[in-house]
Design a protein around this nucleic acid. Structure first.
Length: 462
RNA sequence: GGCGAGUUGGCGGAGUGGUUACGCAGCGGAUUGCAAAUCCGUGUACAGGAGUUCGAUUCUCCUACUCGCCUCCA
């Protein structure tokens, strides 16, 4: 059996992965807050952990992996949008408007991530559906002395948890020195973080022992992971910007509530634009949908994402996009000639070594140049770059080129006799400018659309 | 300021204590009316310094630089 090795943030080492229960390998990944369309940075963990999911399913069996990825639908930005819509005259209660905003965002997310070839997780829990579990967990933390209620808030006593900061490698005292922690009158200590907070009339809320309120951000993952994966599971993943404080707080809550929580922590690096992290707050983002609307196929986005190791920052560039598309067109053409098979052991070994997707792609290059269509096909499949069928954007001849081929062919035959090739060359230049690959040989003329194909430019030939 | 990650040939990007990927571009050749596509050939690069070692790009330390987190963020 393939041994998977993973870089565990908790130990900062690459370790052999040993499941708690090989019959049920459990993984939790922090999903999006559903307040707006997903930007390209949001897609990185989805794709990275989708490859891990596929690999785990391959190694342990399709039915022996449970993958949970949440939707955070308790968030002030969702509330803001709903409130704006209500003020703009939208019908429905504020709660209904909030729910519909969350709902539409989830639909967008699904649509976008589906195109990227990401399998749906086994569970996609929404925070709003797990509030009772969160309340129960908070009550437990209070009973054990790790949390306290004050002025409608419930806070976690960070100093009661000795291992706090271990994951992200910081000490409680360092954080005080950083001095960016929020001081609030209801806190015993500035480091304490919110488990529950009160809601006003314009904010969604649930009844609780501490009055009407809503959960803090971190508790949902602890509660949902516990509910769906149990007190001890294998892998917890997410972007490395979540390492602190989100994951640190999750660990504190869950462990103090009596859970063992996750064995392995995986963090992907950030996506960059012009050397800076792509993020909403910097405003340097574009969405997955933006790219799809520019006719960048999902497989191309996925290929570019996978061509850099997940623990390194990655720049999205036009050059990579174009190169990826050319490579994929070639590979799909070859893969189409083969039947489904199993991925070769070398590919699996590379992939199993801390998800070396870039190495896997390099291996695919070798398979392709060696003409090993079946292994290439299986490799594309395990990387999620194709299913049973070649993607439509490659397989479909969107435009009938036979007339143009005949036109050029006739001109060429004439030119062969007259030895005057100026007319042929003029046609060829036009076809090339329209984004066609022109191939002329003894067997005739073949036109193949490239990524830059633009049918409008063919009109110049009429 | 604290903590963390990183710095590989023209570009992208893996990896390794000694034989040094892979892709793109480039160059030379075959092929072609000319091209394209294809095929063949071609490049010892690992931020700087010190140390460990028979030997380091790979291990250790220091320096420089880049990025991230410490505030909502994937």
């Amino acid at each position: 059996m393939t041994t998977i090795r993973l870089h565990n943030t908790k130990t900062r080492k690459r370790e052999d992965f040993t499941p708690i229960d090989p019959k049920n390998v459990r993984i939790y990944v922090c999903g999006p807050t559903v307040y707006d369309r997903a930007h390209l940075g949001n897609a990185r963990p989805v794709i990275v952990f989708d490859v891990l999911y596929r690999l785990l399913r391959h190694v342990y069996g399709q039915d022996h992996v449970t993958y949970v990825r949440n939707f955070t639908d308790v968030d002030d930005r969702i509330n803001e949008t709903a409130l704006k819509r209500q003020l703009a005259g939208a019908t429905g209660t504020l709660e209904e408007l909030i729910a519909s905003r969350a709902h539409e965002t989830i639909e967008w997310y699904h649509a976008d991530m589906d195109v990227l070839g990401a399998l749906r997780p086994n569970h996609e829990p929404r925070a709003t559906a797990y509030v009772p579990q969160m309340v129960a967990m908070i009550e437990g933390l209070i009973a054990r002395g790790f949390a306290y209620a004050n002025q409608g808030h419930v806070l976690f006593r960070v100093r009661e948890y000795a291992d706090y900061g271990k994951l992200s490698g910081r000490s409680v005292d360092d954080m005080i020195a950083g001095a960016r922690v929020e001081v609030a009158p209801y806190k015993e200590d500035p480091l304490d973080f919110v488990l529950w907070k009160p809601s006003d009339a314009e904010t969604p809320g649930w009844d609780s022992p501490w009055g009407r309120g809503r959960p803090g951000w971190h508790i949902e993952c602890s509660a949902m992971a516990h509910e769906l994966l149990g007190p001890h599971f294998d892998i917890h993943g997410g972007g490395n910007d979540l390492m602190f404080p989100h994951h640190e707080n999750e660990i504190a809550q869950s462990c103090c509530a009596g859970d063992k929580f996750a064995n392995v922590w995986l963090h992907n690096e950030m996506l960059q634009v012009e050397g800076k992290k792509m993020s909403k707050s910097l405003g340097n983002f574009f969405t997955v949908r933006d790219l799809l609307e520019q006719d960048v196929p999902g497989e191309v986005i996925r290929f570019v994402m996978l061509s850099t190791h997940y623990r390194k920052p990655m720049d999205w560039t036009q050059t990579k996009r174009a190169e990826a598309e050319r490579t994929l067109r070639k590979w799909y053409a070859l893969a189409a000639t083969a039947e489904d098979g199993a991925p070769d052991s070398q590919l699996l070994a590379v992939l199993a070594d801390d998800l070396n997707t870039a190495g896997a792609i390099a291996h695919l290059h070798k398979l392709a140049s060696a003409g090993e269509a079946e292994h290439l096909r299986a490799g594309l499949q395990i990387l999620g770059l194709m299913d049973e069928l070649i993607p439509l954007w490659v397989a479909q001849a969107a435009f009938d080129l036979t007339d143009y081929e005949a036109f050029l062919s006739d001109a060429r035959v004439t030119a062969m006799e007259s030895k005057d090739f100026t007319h042929v060359d003029r046609i060829k230049t036009m076809l090339t400018r329209a984004g066609l690959q022109v191939q002329m040989s003894k067997d005739g003329v073949v036109l193949t659309p490239t990524a830059e194909f633009d049918a409008d430019k063919l009109e110049a030939l009429e």
